[in-house]
Amino acid sequence: MEQIEVPDQFVDNNEFQLEGIDFITNGDQYLTFTLGEENYGIDILVVSEIRGWDVPTHIPNAPAHVKGVTNLRGTIVPIVDLRTLFHLGEAEYKPTTVVIVISLTNERVDRTMGFVVDSVSDVLNADVDEVKSHSSFGGSVPPDYVDGLVNVGEDIVTLLNVEQLLSLDDDHAEH
């Protein structure tokens, strides 16, 4: 195999870029995924990994959206099905079904949890002023879970509030 040499000056003056993927943006980045027909996004910085669906261990008497716990390299991580939580579409488990593992540590929350989604779509760049407050029409997603909406071409992506997702606040889920 032929070796590709990277000229030093490219690395040095920081102009070395990967084409096609724009890493450098001014706005926030979101990982977008689909739940049924809808598009959702979460702050990409809290996503620690994306893994395939694997049947977790049942937690006795847990609410329906908590599918159970799984072993993430020695840590016990609960798995929540967002489709059940938000009453969106069928909670089917297909080859594209993935679990987004979210980990957040701040003064209010210190948790790692996995969330089942239908499929992961893209990474979305959105400036703060592109995020619109969401409509007051009540959908099946409780308003606390929504940070805002972003228009992406024809589609709308709902940005989810990570802290609320990790809060295990069952009252909202059960209504």
Binding site: T57, P60, T75, D110
Partner: peptide, 27 residues
């Protein structure tokens, strides 16, 4: 013994979880 509470919450009738030889979690 692994804590369930660190990432989840207390569960009635369960004191914790553990990881078995095959990597699966058991209450």
């Amino acid at each position: 013994i692994k804590s369930l509470e660190s990432n989840y919450k207390r569960v009635d009738g369960v004191s914790g979880a553990t990881i078995l030889g095959d990597g699966s979690v058991s209450m």
